[in-house]
Design a protein around this nucleic acid. Structure first.
Length: 429
DNA sequence: TCTGGGGTCCTAGGACCC
DNA sequence: TCTGGGGTCCTAGGACCC
């Protein structure tokens, strides 16, 4: 039977920090998200202290102090690079692989042609090998779940993480106690069932994965769309979510950040927005696409005014483009439409959509002359090349401002050990 | 009082994931 | 005082067409 492997890095961001600072082992460690606002990763020791995922940092202050919890600001350059190393290692061993997120990959093992009674053992050994090699080559510990569908591999992974005696690998394929295992998985912990559906299902007296597995298909189709029905089939061992090996170009690109402090003047907001637009345009060019539609949004504090904290504006561009100055101009125009001086803003963002491959550039009567476009392309290529070689924002647009008072706070950030020559780890003997 | 039927496209909103 | 960021997919309903 075909098996899906789900390789999941343990407490990924914390594990990345531990690779470069071994003193962090066996201690409670947390990583905070942007502006050091809330907890986005926890070591097992921190989980044992009941520090919740997404908990606001200010609510945990006492707890951190009391238990000497070590706190880091998110270092996404480091985590991104460590993720690449893990995925490269896995790609080396797997025949088919889908990189699902920064810390997870689905993959399939090489075809097994030996005696049937040793098949299970073959896959188990393969997973154990993957696990130890990933740890050896990257320093990152992983857990591996194996199952006949992705959803069941997810369940298996959960168990591999939960029970230490499994040594980080669990195969749920043809398991004699499958239904008992599923009965121990709360409905909201099933992959594809979020809080809304979980609530709906609980109201319908379905509380765990096993009960959901045997729920009436028609009811599920009606109340949870085709996607919910696929999840149900997957729990029954019928694969509905195939491995997606070649990553598709993104259909939209969004960049937004919460400010380090609130802003009520449009000049600062425009600077921040210009900086996010530059970042989004860079992503656009990286995947070789153009955008024809730009949306910008601005948020005030949603806890102060839950019904009226979000405003957005959008505009269609005359022709698809990836030219940063043109996008900044369009973004500014949109911002002017919605910005109110009397408000305290805490965040702005940009979404680029209607993305098309850049060699499909559609010309029309307003298209600037070809030599202009060639010149613009050269400018952008040069900027991207310099920033790739010498680090992000070596060259930036003056529209992003110099002082950047809106920039986020990160008080406890580790060094970019693997992506910045000036921050390499030094070892003194 | 009667006021078609079937199709496509677009958008907003709601659900989910990490 | 402080409560993240970046994506995808599906569906219902309205606009529009013949």
């Amino acid at each position: 039977m075909k098996r899906y492997f789900l390789v999941d890095c343990n407490n990924f961001y914390v594990s990345c920090e531990r690779v470069f600072n071994p003193k962090l082992h066996n201690k409670p460690v947390v990583v905070l998200g942007s502006n050091d606002a809330c907890v986005i990763a926890r070591s097992n020791e921190a989980k044992a202290l009941d520090i919740a995922m997404g908990a606001p940092a200010f609510e945990c202050k006492e707890l951190f102090k009391k238990h000497n919890v070590i706190v880091y600001s998110a270092n996404f350059a480091l985590y991104g690079d460590m993720s690449n190393r893990v995925m490269q290692t896995l790609t080396h061993y797997a025949t088919d692989i889908e990189i699902y997120s920064v810390d997870e990959a689905f993959l399939c093992a090489p075809h097994y042609a030996g005696p049937e009674n040793q098949e299970q053992y073959f896959y188990y050994s393969y997973a154990t090998m993957l696990r130890s090699h990933t740890h050896q080559y990257t320093g990152i510990p992983v857990s591996i779940g194996i199952g006949p569908t992705k959803t069941l591999a997810k369940v298996a992974n959960k168990l591999a993480k939960k029970y230490k005696k499994l040594n980080g690998v669990f195969d749920i394929t043809d398991h004699p106690a499958l239904d008992t295992i599923l009965a121990s998985i709360a409905i909201e912990d099933v992959w594809g069932i979020g809080s809304r559906y979980a609530k709906k299902l609980r109201n319908h007296h379905i509380t765990n994965a096993q009960e959901f597995k045997y729920t009436d298909e028609k009811w599920v189709r009606k109340n949870m769309t085709i996607v919910g029905l696929k999840t149900l089939y997957e729990l029954r061992g019928i694969s509905c979510f195939p491995l997606e090996e070649s990553p598709q170009p993104k259909q939209s690109i969004c960049v937004s950040r919460t400010f380090g402090k609130k802003i009520n003047n449009i000049l600062s907001a425009k600077e921040a927005l210009a900086s996010y637009v530059s970042c989004a345009a860079e992503k656009l060019r990286k995947q070789q696409t153009l955008t024809a539609h730009i949306t910008i949004f601005a948020l005030t504090n949603r806890y102060d005014d839950p019904h009226n904290y979000f405003r957005s504006a959008h505009c269609q561009l005359p022709i698809a483009t990836d030219y940063t100055p043109q996008l900044i101009t369009a973004a500014n125009r949109c911002l002017e439409q919605i910005f109110k001086r009397t408000y305290q803003y805490k965040k702005v963002g940009v979404i680029l959509s209607d993305l098309v491959p850049h060699d499909f550039r559609q010309m029309n009567i307003t298209t600037p002359p070809l030599h202009n476009i060639i010149k613009q392309n050269k400018q952008m290529e040069t900027i991207d090349r310099i920033n790739t070689k010498w680090g992000r924002n070596t060259l930036f647009f003056a529209a992003s401002g110099i002082e950047q008072p809106w920039k986020m706070h990160q008080a406890h950030k580790s060094a970019c050990f693997t992506t910045n020559w000036h921050e390499l780890l030094t070892i003194t003997i």
